[in-house]
Simulated assay, not measured.
Amino acid sequence: MGPVAFDASLWDEPTTGIGLYARCLASGLENRGVRLLRLGARVSGEDPRGRMGRTTYVLGRLPQALRDSEAPLYHALGNFNLPLVRIPGKAYVVTVHDLIPLRMPETVSRAYRWQFRLWLARSVQVADRIVCVSACTRDDLLARHPEVAHKVTVVHNGVDHVDRYALDATTEDFLRSLSLPQRFVLYAGSLDVRKNVSLVLDALERLKARGRPATLVLAGQSWFGSGSVESRVGRMRAEGHDIRPLGYQSEPVFYELMRRATVFAFPSKYEGFGLPPLEAMRLGTPAIVSTTGATPEVCGEAALAVRPDDAEGLAEAMDRLLRSDTERRRWAEEGRRHAARFTWARCAEGTLEAYESALRR
């Protein structure tokens, strides 16, 4: 196989789920001897886009960059961002992480929803192979585009990237400054409506009403529709709840918080994969997830699960884990064992098979 033209549009940006996927998959592919040409990063790689927006780059400049490239294949990583036209002699692969803008339209802006719908429809038509990160995402895609079933393969994400972050002095000093209690609940991720942080707050109120208050740490950035959650957090803190909103954190802090948390609560209403609870499980922290989306597929029976509207069930699960060392050890061991199956080496292997299949078309 020749070099692969690789979507690097999020390479130089603050880390998001897709950006993490791009970096970890790239590392896994390069470890298998694949040479990547990183196209469309803001300042790095083989064809940096500079001040040009990501959409403008893909639609305007990327087609010519592919024509000029020696790479026989281009891999788009962001759900739908393939060029609109086929380039002779070039195979196309696209990774679809989720169809949340179509399944839960209220969680994104109207403009983005239309962009997603139209560009996804075109991308799956021009793609030679479509990589879905879960069977759940595959089923969502085929419910809308059954005609592309022959192109789709499922390749799960890895989670072993968390192993590379060792505790350093800067992270230690920062965490010490927070004066966190010995036991706390962590939610890590964006604060948008889909993530269902409000259910965690409901559970927190129930625990306090029973005389068993818990500390909640929120590590995540604001997102579309997060205003109501942030307002409620402010009100609850004024009422005496111990809630620590930390905002976006660097990877060393983010993963050390996961490692130190007593419980990781992630009752998201819908995930195309659900990486954060799997990260917590890899780090030995018991996770509580919801019964919807891809989290049952990804976390299996190694995480406690509650319905996304079951505040009482979430409160009970949080309380059990906060109060029982035996329960925590049991779920921590199950979580570590289960998460060990998800590696970026396996993800790279499955992706390479998709490349080879696309090149044979």
Rank of each mutant, 00 (worst) to 15 (best):
S27I: 01
E356M: 12
T95C: 08
T153A: 15
D98M: 02
P14R: 08
V4G: 02
D309A: 13
H150Y: 05
L180W: 09
Y355A: 07
F80P: 01
S134G: 06
V4I: 15
L39Y: 08
R307H: 15
G284S: 09
A121Q: 08
V229E: 01
V133W: 03
A317G: 09
S177A: 12
E312V: 15
L82C: 12
R361E: 13
P48V: 00
R328Y: 08
L77F: 08
W344F: 07
R110V: 15
C132S: 11
G189Q: 10
V233Q: 05
V197E: 05
R138I: 09
R61N: 02
V85E: 12
V58A: 06
K90V: 11
M104Y: 13
L278H: 05
V200E: 03
Y187C: 07
L84M: 13
F266R: 00
N157F: 06
R259S: 11
A111Q: 12
G89M: 01
R38I: 07
L36I: 04
E353W: 01
Y57C: 11
R337S: 13
T137G: 01
A5D: 10
T343I: 04
E70C: 11
L99V: 03
V43E: 14
A8W: 10
C136M: 00
P105V: 06
E251I: 00
P14G: 03
F116W: 13
S268H: 06
A358T: 12
N81I: 10
S222Q: 14
P88Q: 11
D128M: 10
D242L: 12
I130Q: 09
W119T: 15
P146Q: 07
P146A: 06
A354R: 05
R61M: 12
L321D: 05
Y92G: 12
A214E: 10
E356P: 00
Y21A: 03
F116S: 06
D98H: 03
S9P: 00
L99E: 04
L359P: 10
P105N: 05
A65C: 14
G240K: 07
A188F: 01
D128K: 01
W119M: 14
H156E: 14
A340T: 00
N157M: 13
H150F: 11
V131H: 06
V124I: 14
N157S: 08
T16G: 11
L118H: 14
H241L: 11
R110G: 09
W223A: 15
L218K: 02
S226K: 08
T16A: 10
A135P: 00
G17E: 09
Y112D: 03
Y74M: 02
E13L: 15
P296G: 09
A8D: 03
R206Y: 00
L25Q: 04
L120H: 06
L39H: 09
V124M: 06
S44Q: 09
M281S: 04
V253K: 07
V152P: 01
R232C: 13
E205L: 04
S226P: 08
F174P: 00
S9C: 12
L178A: 02
E30M: 15
P181A: 03
